[in-house]
């Protein structure tokens, strides 16, 4: 059974039709990479999954939690379900979005404490486990401003993991990084993938997509153009638009 199911999703920003009847299913432990030029709607699609962007129309299902958006105003029941969905999805942003007024450790335990009501010692233990996993235990008491971009993003990944999500959403996680710092973030993501985390990754890193993902999706102008095994989509695409895009980036 799919852990994420997006059905007939439409998203309009004013008159701009950013997502056009997009459907997508992600299986547990699958790593799906979404590629496409900027403005193709790939980030919007990702952000619709946890409702940072409210779809105009369509159905989102995550881990059995279903929200069917038919009108702009959400019911209280739907808002409750969205909250549940956010609890089981972790998200990593292009701009890291660490909380600058909190130390690294406090960044990690903030949500477990306030959202789940986890006791502080348990939350701290959990946070340390994930800080260790991303290799930043030594930065536990630093403030985000003192970290490099790569370290920030690894902390952001650990912060998402500390909520123990079932799915991780990555929104261009390496696009704001200096080239020499991209590797350390991708390494952490590879480890996660190996451990069986379900991941949806919007990325420009073709290397990562072909090496780590189980499936690659190419989007263009709000439409899902082509999907399949990465070696197929990235190396031997059937759609001319995909071919054109790949010629330009590779």
């Amino acid at each position: 059974m799919s852990i994420i199911r997006v059905s007939h999703l439409d998203k309009l920003f004013g008159r701009l039709h950013v997502l056009k009847d997009v459907s997508l299913a992600v299986e547990p432990q699958e790593v799906v990479c979404i590629i496409g030029r900027s403005g193709s709607g790939k980030s919007t699609l990702l952000r619709c999954i946890n409702f940072l962007e409210q779809p105009t129309h369509g159905v989102i299902e995550v881990d059995g939690l279903v929200v069917n958006v038919a009108q702009h105003r959400l019911t209280d029941q739907q808002k409750q379900t969205i909250h549940q969905i956010r609890l089981c999805t972790g998200m990593v942003f292009q701009e890291f979005n660490l909380f600058p007024h909190l130390s690294v450790l406090d960044n990690l335990i903030e949500a477990p404490l306030t959202v789940k009501g986890t006791p502080r010692d348990q939350a701290t233990a959990l946070a340390e486990k994930y800080l260790d996993k991303v290799g930043l235990m030594s930065k536990r008491n630093e403030f985000p401003a003192r970290l490099s971009g790569g370290q920030k993003q690894r902390v952001a990944i650990a912060r998402a993991l500390t909520m123990e999500p079932k799915v991780m959403l990555f929104d261009e996680p390496t696009s704001a990084l200096d080239p020499e710092l991209i590797g350390e973030v991708l390494d952490v993501m590879k480890d996660l993938a190996k451990e069986g985390m379900t991941m949806v990754v919007v990325t420009h890193e073709m290397g990562f997509a072909s090496e780590v993902s189980n499936r690659a999706i190419f989007m263009d102008q709000g439409e899902l153009v082509e999907e399949g095994p990465p070696h197929k989509v990235l190396a031997n695409p059937s759609d001319p638009r995909t071919r054109q895009f790949l010629e330009r980036v590779l």
């Binding site: 946890n50 940072l52 909250h83 956010r86 609890l87 999805t89 972790g90 998200m91 942003f93 701009e95 979005n97 660490l98 909380f99 903030e110 949500a111 306030t114 959202v115 789940k116 952001a156 912060r159 998402a160 909520m163």
Partner: peptide, 14 residues
């Protein structure tokens, strides 16, 4: 920044 709010919401904060 808007990203701060989004990060908090994505973590499940109200």
């Amino acid at each position: 920044s808007k990203g701060q709010r989004e990060a908090a919401l994505a973590l499940g904060m109200t």
